[in-house]
Simulated assay, not measured.
Amino acid sequence: MTYSKQQLARQIAEAATLRGEFLLRSGQTSERYFDKYRFEGIPSLLKPMARAMAELVPPETEILAGLELGGIPLVTAISLEMGLPAAFVRKQAKTYGTCRAIEGQDVTDRRITFIEDVITTGGAVKDAFHLAVAEQANVLAVVCAIWRGDGKPQIQGVSQLPVHAVFTKEDLEDGR
């Protein structure tokens, strides 16, 4: 199915918006929560979201790097859409097997773009950035499905990293 951006925002909001009291990873509380797994698990929403995110990936990107856990279905779908290899970024290096934090691809001296689901302050992206730099990757940007933070999208502590969002929380709240 093909959606306009407004239609996709409406469909994502209907599928993923929960109301109540929620503690966010950032430590903030919110009465509205965007449960990304509710749209990432629906092919008719995941596919157009992957297309929309693919349009925001810098053209010089060599590897797409999805952040654990919500970025993994997105990076896989975008990889299929663009034909670029995908890497998978753990929250920390595992203590067995390869003992790596970034799996699937060698990111050393490669231009990578992070793929993330929902960002409020970017704490997980900041952590992933430091892991990628430790592996000598050149991180170009982060592309996210939803920017739920206030103001212009940016990662606290890594303000030089460009953030490209398909939707803001206002887009989903307004059904734009």
Rank of each mutant, 00 (worst) to 15 (best):
residue 34 F to I: 14
residue 133 V to H: 09
residue 17 T to R: 11
residue 38 R to P: 09
residue 111 R to W: 01
residue 60 E to W: 09
residue 157 G to H: 11
residue 151 G to D: 00
residue 166 V to S: 13
residue 69 L to H: 10
residue 113 T to N: 02
residue 105 Q to K: 06
residue 154 Q to W: 02
residue 46 L to G: 07
residue 60 E to M: 06
residue 135 E to I: 01
residue 63 I to A: 08
residue 28 Q to S: 07
residue 54 A to F: 04
residue 4 S to M: 08
residue 79 S to G: 15
residue 50 A to E: 02
residue 24 L to M: 04
residue 2 T to A: 13
residue 44 S to A: 15
residue 175 G to A: 06
residue 146 I to H: 03
residue 132 A to Y: 05
residue 108 T to G: 04
residue 63 I to L: 10
residue 129 F to T: 09
residue 11 Q to D: 13
residue 81 E to H: 06
residue 120 T to R: 02
residue 60 E to A: 14
residue 77 A to Q: 06
residue 174 D to G: 09
residue 139 V to K: 00
residue 46 L to Q: 07
residue 74 L to M: 06
residue 163 V to N: 05
residue 88 F to K: 02
residue 100 R to G: 00
residue 96 Y to D: 03
residue 63 I to Y: 11
residue 82 M to R: 14
residue 12 I to S: 07
residue 125 V to P: 01
residue 147 W to M: 12
residue 8 L to Q: 01
residue 171 D to I: 04
residue 38 R to F: 08
residue 65 A to H: 11
residue 101 A to K: 02
residue 107 V to A: 01
residue 77 A to K: 08
residue 148 R to P: 02
residue 47 K to R: 15
residue 163 V to S: 07
residue 169 K to V: 13
residue 29 T to H: 14
residue 138 N to P: 00
residue 39 F to W: 12
residue 43 P to S: 12
residue 14 E to D: 03
residue 133 V to K: 14
residue 160 Q to K: 11
residue 101 A to N: 04
residue 150 D to L: 01
residue 55 E to Q: 15
residue 54 A to N: 10
residue 33 Y to T: 00
residue 159 S to M: 02
residue 76 T to P: 03
residue 82 M to C: 10
residue 163 V to Q: 03
residue 20 G to N: 12
residue 133 V to L: 12
residue 101 A to E: 02
residue 138 N to C: 11
residue 113 T to H: 07
residue 136 Q to N: 11
residue 43 P to H: 11
residue 166 V to M: 11
residue 85 P to D: 05
residue 22 F to K: 10
residue 85 P to E: 09
residue 52 A to F: 13
residue 52 A to I: 09
